[in-house]
Design a protein around this nucleic acid. Structure first.
Lengths: 202, 202
DNA sequence: CTTTGTTGACTTAACGGTCGCTAAAGTAAC
DNA sequence: GTTACTTTAGCGACCGTTAAGTCAACAAAG
């Protein structure tokens, strides 16, 4: 379950039903996909699908579970591994978020389907996202207080940064010319500018 | 049609059917809304709805038309009104985008439903968004060349900025404490940092 | 060894309900 | 009488879901 290292992204190991569902949900959206499409894409019949999952929504939840946990644990590992300076921690977290968003882009797209979940599940994912926000916010605040960073409001800046990263999936194409590490490098530079720490500083 | 000024946002003047459809689409998503819901929300019957619009998709298109055009024309006006410096143009465009995203948040949320459109309509909106990107990119490039801005890549930075603005709708609440002008002010500061132009400079 | 019972994985067939959409008739204003 | 718009009624297709049966694998009982 736990990856060997937060920078290493093995191919997603999902059961065939979830693998197929991921493709269909990504292409057509949650409400736009029928359980029949999910079933045929996974190579099973419809009741075969219901044997493994109690409902269509449960499939989406299982998929999101695989996503949110990974993002959070990788960002945490990236933070812990960094030298104990705001700058090092910040760049590691940014790199890890951008790597996850790109390497797991199909899963990340599902974030926009989050609001169709029943309230209980939705609260669960809202909490997870808040945890990520707090991780990044802590680092930005530390940099703010030590004057390593130049930000007017750590809270606003953190929220803006996370939005910036999340938006990558709206244009990222795994078949395109840019690789995840390349994008991570570019966004590291941009994010450093956003928190007022120029590349030149060390 | 054209607003008196790009900073002024009168209440949306939409025909009742579109007004109701906007609420329903925003709450449930395109595929999650039925034409029966759209009709009852607008106070008409289903065939009454089909008298005005040929299909469910046409309603979404009409709604998006009202959105994209406004965003583009306001950003253009904000650019033209600014003093002819990259910094003034940049802050005006940023302010105008953030004001539109917040004042017209219900319409902006529909952007995530864009991929469910048939290819022809989707290309139309992709082109409009590209126009906005080019408007902002031109200004960022000008600031880059005149050394007013400090960016490593105007293209990447512009794309990151637009993603940052678009993401506002994921947390913005019209009933919340923050008003659109307040958010615009905060994002102006953040965006200036992102392009490497500190607030202190004039 | 066979027989029998149990489980797990999956099938065929279909349930009631909702989907997007429309034909045809009606109404009110000009 | 024409135009603008609404109504009642319902089309066929598809929706998420389920009941009931099939079939291989395996274990305990004879």
């Amino acid at each position: 379950m736990a990856p060997a290292h937060w920078r290493h992204y093995p191919p997603l190991d999902l059961p065939p039903i979830l693998r197929g569902a991921l493709e269909v949900f990504t292409a057509r959206g949650y409400h736009g996909s029928s359980v029949r499409e999910l079933a045929t894409h996974a190579g099973v019949t419809v009741p075969g699908l219901y044997y493994h999952y109690p409902s269509k929504q449960a499939i989406l939840v299982a998929l999101l579970d695989a996503c949110v946990g990974e993002l959070l644990s990788r960002a945490g590992a990236a933070h812990d591994e960094a030298a104990p300076t705001p700058r090092a921690r910040f760049t590691n977290i940014v790199e890890s978020i951008v790597l996850t968003v790109t390497h797991r882009s199909a899963l990340t797209v599902l974030d926009s389907e989050l609001r169709y979940l029943e309230p209980e599940s939705r609260r669960h994912y809202a909490a997870a996202r808040k945890q990520l926000e707090n991780l990044l916010l802590g680092v930005v605040r530390a940099g703010h207080q030590s004057r390593t960073f130049d930000v007017s409001s750590p809270e606003d800046t953190t929220r803006a940064l996370l939005g910036m990263f999340q938006a990558i999936v709206t244009w990222y194409d795994p078949a395109g010319p840019l690789t995840p590490p390349e994008i991570a490098t570019r966004y590291r530079t941009i994010a450093l500018h956003t928190v007022g720490a120029t590349e030149a500083q060390r």
